[in-house]
């Protein structure tokens, strides 16, 4: 293993330790009222930010394909019109079809 790869893996492992392992093992317990808040409101905020982040990142690649397919995925999820597999298929198929139609994919 060369030095650069070793340093890269060490940085990745250290990151995991700082952002995931350390907060999970330090044993800090939130008060019960705070815990309920942290288990319902905070995750909602995280998931809303996931969506905004993904949308902004994906429209940089293809505005139309990403907008249409992410709306389709969100609607399938919201109305529970099938499971995750159907949501993923609907989103991906619509994205790749529109991107191919717009000649944004070259085979």
């Amino acid at each position: 293993m060369n030095d650069t790869v070793f340093i890269t893996i060490a940085a990745l492992l250290s990151t995991s330790f700082i952002v995931r392992i350390l907060p999970a093992i330090h044993g800090f317990q939130l008060p019960e009222a705070m815990m309920q808040w942290a288990e319902s409101i905070l995750p909602t905020a995280v998931f809303l930010n996931f969506i905004a982040y993904i949308f902004i990142q994906e429209i940089k690649v293809s505005v139309l394909a990403a907008s249409v397919s992410l709306v389709i995925t969100a609607l399938i999820a919201f109305f529970k019109a099938g499971g995750l597999m159907l949501g993923m298929t609907g989103g991906c198929v619509s994205y790749y079809l529109i991107a191919a139609h717009l000649n944004q994919i070259t085979f």
């Binding site: 909602t44 998931f47 996931f50 969506i51 993904i54 995925t73 969100a74 995750l84 949501g87 989103g91």
Partner: peptide, 13 residues
């Protein structure tokens, strides 16, 4: 990305 959007919507709902 699609899977994460799907799961996020269901969790938010």
């Amino acid at each position: 990305s699609v899977v994460l959007v799907y799961l996020s919507v269901t969790q938010i709902k």
